[in-house]
């Protein structure tokens, strides 16, 4: 700061004012960023209610300079059975999450709290899952799914994701940050490791679990190629497959308004969930990073 020494009082006053000004600049910059960042959504929102759906000069406009119509949404609902898609997608996304929470808690606990030969190596072997590129897995994994008798079922879509390297990693970190004293106290009180995990560690790891849930839900809600490979009937289709029936066309044109409406329909539940629980979600990410 400046070398000149005024009274302590005036210096803090000046720095306070400067802080105010810089806060204003930051807020302004953020507002611009927010606008840029949300432009695609603004356009989607505006386009989904626009009467002309395929082209026209006005299609690119971000201003709702029209009489809004629900035609695009009506068409979207007619193009597919969205109620079924929502249910199936929810089953897949939450089903995967439910099983994952069990597998990652157990594995995370083993890596964080128990010592056994080869722990480090096995941990890195776990991480291999993060490195695998999905398209290469399609053919062998589909074969496994058929062998398990799960081809064409929602369970077949879910099965490969039941174990999660990312989740295990996150739980290991979270458990490590919880002081051992807590469970040791519980174990001395005569509790079994399972009870210590269930009654002591998991409640304390809740932020980590919530953070992981968000990541997992986002990934599986939006997945496309793998469900397309496994599912075989309209009644088992998920939202992204439904969306693709009108979003992807190889010949001819695209109905942008319809695409916008469909995209909104797919995203709406996630956005709503996040809007309602955003503080919990973000806080959970913060706590997940907290060191004990």
């Amino acid at each position: 700061m400046t070398a000149e020494t005024g009274s302590l009082h005036s210096a803090s006053l000046r720095s306070g004012r400067r802080r105010q000004r810089s806060a204003l600049v930051v807020a302004g910059l953020m507002a611009i960023t927010a606008f840029l960042w949300s432009t695609p959504f603004l356009w989607t929102l505006v386009a989904s209610f626009r009467p002309e759906t395929a082209g026209g000069i006005g299609m690119a406009s971000l201003l709702p300079d029209y009489i809004p119509t629900l035609d695009n949404f009506r068409n979207a609902f007619e193009s597919g059975d969205f109620a079924v898609y929502y249910v199936n997608t929810a089953i897949v996304a939450f089903g995967i999450l439910a099983v994952q929470i069990v597998t990652i808690s157990l594995a995370g606990y083993a890596f964080a709290r128990l010592s056994f030969p080869g722990r480090e190596t096995i941990f890195y072997v776990f991480l291999l899952q993060l490195m695998l590129v999905p398209p290469i897995l399609i053919v062998p994994n589909l074969r496994t799914i058929v062998d398990l008798g799960l081809y064409g079922s929602l369970a077949g879509v879910m099965a490969p994701y039941f174990a999660s390297a990312f989740g295990t990693f996150l739980m290991r970190q979270t458990f490590r940050q919880i002081p051992r004293d807590f469970e040791e106290a519980a174990v001395i009180d005569g509790a079994h490791w399972g009870q210590a995990l269930w009654h002591v560690l998991l409640p304390m790891a809740k932020p980590g679990l919530i953070a992981f849930s968000l990541v997992s839900l986002m990934a599986h809600w939006n997945e496309f190629l793998w469900p397309l490979m496994v599912l075989n009937e309209p009644r088992t289709h998920t939202l992204t497959i439904g969306l693709a029936t009108f979003a992807l066309s190889t010949e001819g044109g695209r109905e942008w308004g319809l695409l916008a409406a469909g995209t909104l329909l797919v995203m709406a539940p996630l956005l709503l969930l996040f809007a309602i629980f955003q503080r919990q979600f973000v806080n959970s990410f913060m706590f997940a990073g907290l060191k004990g």
Binding site: P40, W43, T44, M59, A60, M218, W221, N222, E223, F224, L239, T240, L243, A244, A247, L248, R254, W256, L259, A260, G262, T263, V266, M267, L270, L271, F274
Partner: peptide
């Protein structure tokens, strides 16, 4: 949170 299938189509227009 946008499905990539949708995001890519939106950007195709953008």
């Amino acid at each position: 949170m946008v499905p990539l299938v949708a995001a890519a189509s939106l950007f195709f227009f953008i």
